[in-house]
Design a protein around this nucleic acid. Structure first.
Lengths: 216, 216
DNA sequence: GAGTGTGAATGTATTCACAGCA
DNA sequence: TGCTGTGAATACATTCACACTC
């Protein structure tokens, strides 16, 4: 029954299941075991992840790819488009603006912010760049609920605070700073140095299992 | 005692502790509780993480910042420099080449590889670009043990296989593809779309805890 | 027969709580 | 007295195993 609580990590796996399902023919049937192998987990785990949210399978057969894809999309909230705002249009920020993968999942970076006067008012990869003081106005106007912070050195805390005040509900932060997690928004950190340090640890201590990022 | 096994996630936290310690004066003393607050965990967790590897604290006082920094560096294998190879010098790859944070932790991207003939033979951010067929030769020559894969569309599997054959022991993969984890190397995935999908899930289902990338 | 859905059993991580030391 | 180090207790996640359904 869907009465149990799903593990914190279910969302990560659901997203991975989805990635795989998207590459398959919709009318195919896939078993939990088959799906599990692609992301390196067990059939039982897949079944459990799914049964928290409902009964999507056909006993004795498996799961209908198209239907399961739709159900997982719904669980993850991907049955609609998401507007995203980017703060920090440096090298990394620009790379993210040009990143193709987002659009396929319904994520659109609609506006970006940077202090560099030579790009304010221009468009990069089709996305307009504004000064950060416009964050509250623009975020509210466009009803944006997700933010990406890729400011090069410091001041990510200010960016995050501004976004949250403006109504953003989840933020992906690339700045390698321990930021104060705002109470009313979900914060996810991506820290490249951190990743390499973990790799260093695993080489040094010869631990061999695979680790999905992550976190986060 | 250090007899117990450390949790898989310890490396992630150790890296975060380290990041914080680096910003402090070496002669200061910090308590487990204080350190914990900066990365959003408990004092008990910090103490446990550390006591897997030895006894670094002073009872009744706390930990000496400089000493602890050194010890954690050693545990993570950061007491030496690491040569890193990058495969895929697109927008994201270039951003990584110019990324400052690596150098401070002893990571040096020494060589890079790309198929684009207009950049082969040149240097980008001071790093020479070679054709991928040179991977085995160059990796062995330079005794490189870590790789970053940021190839734009496909073929990350080939890149990964080539790196591993050449002796690379850990790989950070940015390509949003479910790759076959090589048996004799540590593979870490960073998938931006995946991250946003998790954020979508958390907003949609109003879950509020913070998640470190992670996640690994 | 084959594979889902799901309680029960196991394994792993975190928190508690406190003895012992500076 | 204040904080570490660490077993014991708890919470959480994964795996097992099997009744049940198509």
């Amino acid at each position: 029954m869907a009465g149990n609580k799903s593990p914190e990590s279910a969302a990560i796996r659901l997203s991975l299941y989805l990635r795989h399902l998207r590459k398959m023919k919709k009318e195919r049937i896939i078993s939990s075991e088959e799906l599990a192998q692609f992301i390196g987990t067990s059939g039982a785990r897949v079944r459990k992840d799914l049964c928290y949210f409902g009964q999507f399978g056909i006993a004795g057969k498996g799961y209908l790819v198209g239907e399961l894809q739709e159900e997982i999309s719904k669980i993850l909230g991907l049955d609609k488009a998401w507007g995203v705002a980017l703060v920090g249009v440096g090298k990394l920020g620009s790379a993210l603006l040009g990143y193709d993968g987002f659009r396929k999942s319904g994520f659109n970076i609609r506006i970006s912010f940077d202090v560099k006067s030579n790009i304010i008012g221009k468009k990069i990869a089709g996305v307009p760049v504004y000064h950060p003081y416009q964050i509250p106005k623009m975020i509210r106007e466009q009803k944006i609920r997700m933010g990406i912070v890729a400011v090069p050195v410091k001041a990510p805390q200010e960016s995050i605070d501004l976004l949250v005040i403006s109504g953003v509900e989840a933020i992906l932060n690339f700045s390698p700073i321990t930021v104060i997690a705002p109470a009313d928004a979900k914060l996810m950190q991506v820290d490249f140095t951190n990743q390499l340090e973990i790799m260093s640890y695993f080489i040094t201590n010869k631990v061999k299992e695979k680790t999905q990022a992550r976190l986060f």
